[in-house]
Amino acid sequence: MKVPYYPGCTLKTKAANFETSALAVAERLGIELVELPRWNCCGTVYSLADDDLIHHVAAVRNLIRVQEMNAQGLVDDEYRLVTLCSMCFNTLKQANVRMSENPEDLEKINDLMYLEDDYEGRVEVKHLLELVDELGFDKVEEQVKNPLEGLRIAPYYGCMLLRPTEVGIDDPEDPQIQTRMLEALGAEKIENPYRKVCCGSYQTVQDKKVVSNLAYDILTHARNAGADAISLSCPLCAFNLDSRQREIKEDHPSFREIPVFYFTQLMAMAFGLSEDYCGFDLNYIDPEPLLSAKGIIGGSNGE
């Protein structure tokens, strides 16, 4: 199955490990993620002012690329556009929803982009988690060679996968999709209500302490609920929860650091793929000691 794929800027740099692991596990599941030709930055945040149409152009342009891919035969009648980064997912999907619900806005946007083909409104923006869900977590389970037994992982969703409701992929107050994934991977399930609390997002640029305070709360509650590690799907959440542990440690010297994974890294481990795909060198808190302690790595089943 070939599916159009939108990487977004951070997946090519700071979160390259997210992409390498995702592409590898997707392949195992029989999904070929075909990168959009000529993609551009989606804008990372959805513009919220009522009159601010121009800022949706960036997002819609990427949707037009999907039409082109179909026209060029790069994919076969496949209008689902997959993202890994939750922020890109949210921005693209909110723009898409606005276009499909407001034909007038769509017309205006198409006028603004008169050099492009018109956007026809057929694209469906999907997060990889959703795509896997559609495929069935039993398919994931079939690929598991190295179950994450004994690993207690708290899923973290943050905001962009869940809210607002029109674009969320799960119940915003009680999301379960990652839990189902983690169960399929053989990990132990941790229920923690802080999994939907915002990490502070872009406030990290303005005031890192604001964010490290929030991260401290989120991580401490995960620890209290018994977690050894966190799983997530957004490079910005990853930065705030992982890298900002440096700032947490400055304020709370007794804080016990906790590794933060992209869910695809966990999938790669469970699928028995080589650690190379996981790029743990890009993780701030090194997860390897935990993984060895639990016997997930260090065995001989890596490829």
Partner: peptide, 8 residues
């Protein structure tokens, strides 16, 4: 990360 800078 870029997304932090751009969104800010």
């Amino acid at each position: 990360p870029q997304i932090a800078l751009i969104s800010a």
